[in-house]
Design a protein around this nucleic acid. Structure first.
Length: 803
DNA sequence: CTCGACGTCATTTTT
DNA sequence: TGACGTCGAG
């Protein structure tokens, strides 16, 4: 390892290289950033400056001359994290980002396979199937094999295949114990053949194919192991078996020098999709990590919040051990609220959120977290009725939208007509008289000849055949028309020529879809102009030291076979192909109602990595959180607890936890018991907004516990719960209504009259039909005509009287 | 091909 | 409850 240049002994000593970078680091962070180039495991607690440590480490390695950009690889799970890293890095140093390999596992695999497509046995312009493409491809295989889709559900078969790949298993490696497995393996094999024919790979294939190539090609492996002196891994606790094996392939040899793994075992919440927390301790053992650095100083939350998090998580066994601390003081207590129903809970929540907002907190800084997506509905409708802007995460993403996928399918066909998935998607969209029979005939023809649908068009005669030929001519003409155009022009051309634009222009709901297609053009433009990722993807794996070749050290013969760039431009992909890859690899933002200041609604899972001034954790009920499906084994419960830990540690200043006695779930009312997690929190950090142990009394809880220990789930308790509820209901006391709130409601009440007109920000004008209740429970029934008859809570809905 | 009726299902999810 | 997929009728 090279050392910083020697000081001139007569000159005043300059500050050591990299000193500026290290200025405001705490001792733990400092130790991590400046760790020697040997395997390091950094246990980074929530809010401990993990990203800062990672990026500063890279900057420090570069600035002290310990590494060149080309010797650094940094891996993340999400595009967002990768971008964040690049952005921060560029503020620290004027670095040549191009030479570094910073990206997601899949992004880097793509980069690697683009460079070595020939060795990997892939076509040069291979395209990537996203999750839904994969399912539909598998569906086609199952249909072609004439198997029962009831027994072989495409989605589940997809899990089987992805699971196998993530265990590093090809069809031949799978033990076929029973008939079912035997058939699954046959499907797997047929699916692989189909992918090979069509020149496409799925996400898991990106990983597995690169892993195998590294494993089987000594020269290549030596090249990369020599090149990457420093391998940095983010969110290490989320790696699966294959990803860990992949990392070991790239790790510099000699006990894995320079592998810098950052993770938090307490935030491992993805076991259900194959993540192995165990990789952390495996890494520690296999790489002989000398010293684990723990980042325990938290810069995000106040003391009560951290106390809650620490106390809760201490109930887990099998931890690497870590305790967060803060210098920010205890702050406010955690506010706990019990509601009679999910409806009431939502009303309370938005009233609370509104008062935070009135006190000056931006809505963006308020997050509502829940365990499962279904829980968002009540809250959404309450927010909607009250006219409060909100944003729900987790919806359809940009590149997953139907109209966008249609446009991409045409673009993919231009690149590769043998892409049957794309062919089927748009062969009759917009409709051009090609029916199911015709397509079936075509599929039969293709199957028997082992060719693609496109290649089999000629073989299908008859009335549908002519239309099919028309379709291929259309795609051919698009290919001709777009020759030599810029990416932007190509997409504009295709959207028009394909008939998509006209289709959506006539469609009554088409305006938004047209906007999205216009947005696709913008995205393409941004992709081409963007520094870093975009250009990298196009002018790929050309080594920074000698354009057109890859780095020295790789034997010539391998090099020649490995990288085959365009002789003139050095490009190995067309901008279009690169953009299509980008579209598969990055699904885009969940751009719901972006722009305005809105309350953030999301699952606890999607909140990981985020932070907010105020956080509401809702639905803290047994069976929901922890979820009933996770209770069968202790691993499941521990993961739920980690999930709760993640939820708690999202909050900076203010944290609310709420639960309700009854909840509408799957069209049935469920009667709930508060979450066991309340028993695992420090009493001193909590402040109950509602009287404790009201509502459901111990009677119900006991009955519930008994039912549970008999092995029957919560579902069987619905009847019993009902009885208990009606017994206990009389004991329920409404919490005292703050005078201020009462007054406000009364005032609003005052202006409204049954039978008179009212105005609502979302529904417009309506007629007030009924007024009932008082205080926070005051409700109004309003007929909004076109929008129907609605019940609105006066505590939240903005209703103004009109004459 | 389009539309409506009916049946089924219901943690968590990135790439 | 409600979203989604499949199937049959027009």
């Amino acid at each position: 390892m090279s050392l910083p240049p020697q000081e001139d002994m007569f000159a005043p000593p300059p500050p050591p290289a990299g000193a500026g970078l290290l200025k405001n680091l705490n001792p733990e962070q400092y130790a991590a950033v400046t760790a020697p180039a040997e395997p390091s495991l950094i246990l980074a607690g929530a809010g401990s400056g993990k990203t800062r440590v990672l990026t500063t480490r890279i900057a420090w390695l570069l600035q002290t001359g310990q590494a060149t950009p080309g010797a650094i690889m940094a891996v993340t799970f999400t595009n967002k994290a990768a971008k964040e890293m690049l952005t921060r890095l560029s503020t620290m140093l004027p670095v040549n980002v191009r030479g570094m390999w910073i990206g997601t596992f899949h992004g880097l695999c793509n980069r690697f396979l683009r460079a070595h497509w020939k060795l990997a046995g892939l076509p040069q312009g291979f395209q990537i199937l996203d999750a839904s493409d994969t399912v539909s491809a598998i569906k086609r295989v199952i249909k072609a094999m004439k198997l029962d889709e009831e027994r072989f559900v495409p989605k589940q078969v997809g899990w089987f295949i992805a699971g196998a790949k993530e265990d590093g298993l090809r069809p031949k490696d799978i033990e076929q114990r029973d008939e079912q497995t035997r058939t699954l393996v046959q499907i797997y094999q047929a699916y692989e053949d189909q992918c090979a024919r069509e020149g496409v790979v799925d996400f898991a294939e990106l990983m597995l194919r690169s892993y195998e190539l590294m494993r089987d090609n000594l020269a290549l492996r030596q090249h990369y192991q020599h090149r990457f002196q420093h391998l940095l891994v983010d969110e290490f606790q989320d790696t699966n078996k294959l990803q860990y094996a992949w990392l070991k392939m790239f790790a510099p040899p000699g006990a894995g020098q320079g592998v810098f793994a950052v993770g938090d075992d307490d935030q491992s919440i993805y076991a259900f999709r194959g993540a192995r927390v165990g990789n952390m301790s495996d890494f520690e053992r296999e790489f002989r990590v000398k010293k684990v650095v723990k980042l325990e100083q938290n810069y995000r939350s106040f003391g009560n919040i951290l106390d809650a998090a620490n106390t809760l998580i201490s109930n887990n066994s099998r931890r690497l051990g870590k305790n967060l601390r803060t210098e920010m003081g205890p702050g406010e207590p955690i506010r706990v609220h019990e509601a009679a129903s999910d409806f009431n809970d939502a009303q309370w929540l938005i009233e609370e959120a509104q008062s935070l907002h009135r006190a000056g907190m931006p809505r963006q800084e308020i997050a509502v977290l829940y365990r499962s997506n279904a829980q968002s509905r009540v809250i959404e409708s309450a927010l909607f009725n009250a006219g409060i802007p909100y944003r729900v995460y987790g919806g359809l993403r940009f590149f997953e939208r139907a109209e966008v996928k249609h446009a991409l399918a045409y673009l993919r066909l231009i690149e590769n007509p043998n892409d049957d998935t794309s062919f089927l998607r748009v062969v009759n969209f917009p409709t051009r008289g090609i029916g199911a029979r015709t397509i079936e005939q075509l599929q039969d023809a293709a199957r028997s000849s082992g060719r693609s649908l496109w290649q089999s068009v000629g073989a299908v005669a008859g009335k549908g055949g002519a239309n099919l030929v028309g379709f291929t001519q259309l795609v051919d003409s698009m290919r001709n028309l777009t020759q030599g155009l810029t990416l932007r022009e190509i997409i504009e051309q295709v959207v028009e020529t394909s008939g998509l634009a006209d289709f959506y222009r006539t469609e009554k709901e088409g305006a938004e879809r047209l906007e999205n297609l216009a947005e696709l053009v913008n995205a393409a433009e941004a992709f081409v102009t963007q520094e870093g990722f975009g250009k990298d993807a196009i002018a790929l794996p050309v080594d920074e030291t000698a354009p057109g070749t890859i780095a020295a050290g790789l034997p010539l013969a391998v090099a020649a076979a490995a990288v085959t760039p365009d002789a003139e431009t050095g490009e190995i992909m067309s901008p279009l192909a690169a953009f299509l890859t980008h579209a598969s690899l990055e699904a885009g933002d969940n751009q719901a109602q972006a722009g305005q200041d809105a309350i953030q609604l999301m699952t606890v899972h999607s909140a990981k990595g985020l932070e907010f001034d105020a956080v509401f954790i809702t639905g803290l009920e047994e069976g929901l959180f922890p979820h009933e499906n996770s209770l069968s084994d202790s691993d499941g419960l521990e993961e739920e607890r980690r999930l709760m830990y993640v939820a708690i540690t999202r909050a900076r200043q203010r944290l609310y936890m709420s639960f309700c006695q009854t909840r509408m779930l799957h069209g049935q009312t469920r009667y709930n018991v508060k979450s066991r997690f309340f028993d695992e929190l420090p009493e001193a950090a909590l402040k109950w907004l509602t009287p404790r142990n009201q509502g459901f009394g111990s009677g119900f809880a006991k009955e519930y516990q008994e039912a549970w220990s008999r092995g029957s789930g919560l579902k069987s308790m619905v009847g019993a719960g009902q009885r208990a509820y009606s017994n206990e209901k009389a004991a329920w006391v409404e919490p005292p209504v703050p005078a201020s709130m009462k007054k406000k409601v009364d005032e609003e009440h005052g202006g409204l009259r049954v039978g008179k007109g009212v105005f609502h920000t979302k529904f417009g004008e309506g007629v007030l039909m009924t007024l009932e209740g008082s205080g926070p429970d005051a409700r109004a029934q309003v007929n909004f005509g076109r929008h129907g008859v609605k019940w609105l809570a006066l505590g939240v809905a903005k209703l103004t009287p009109i004459d």
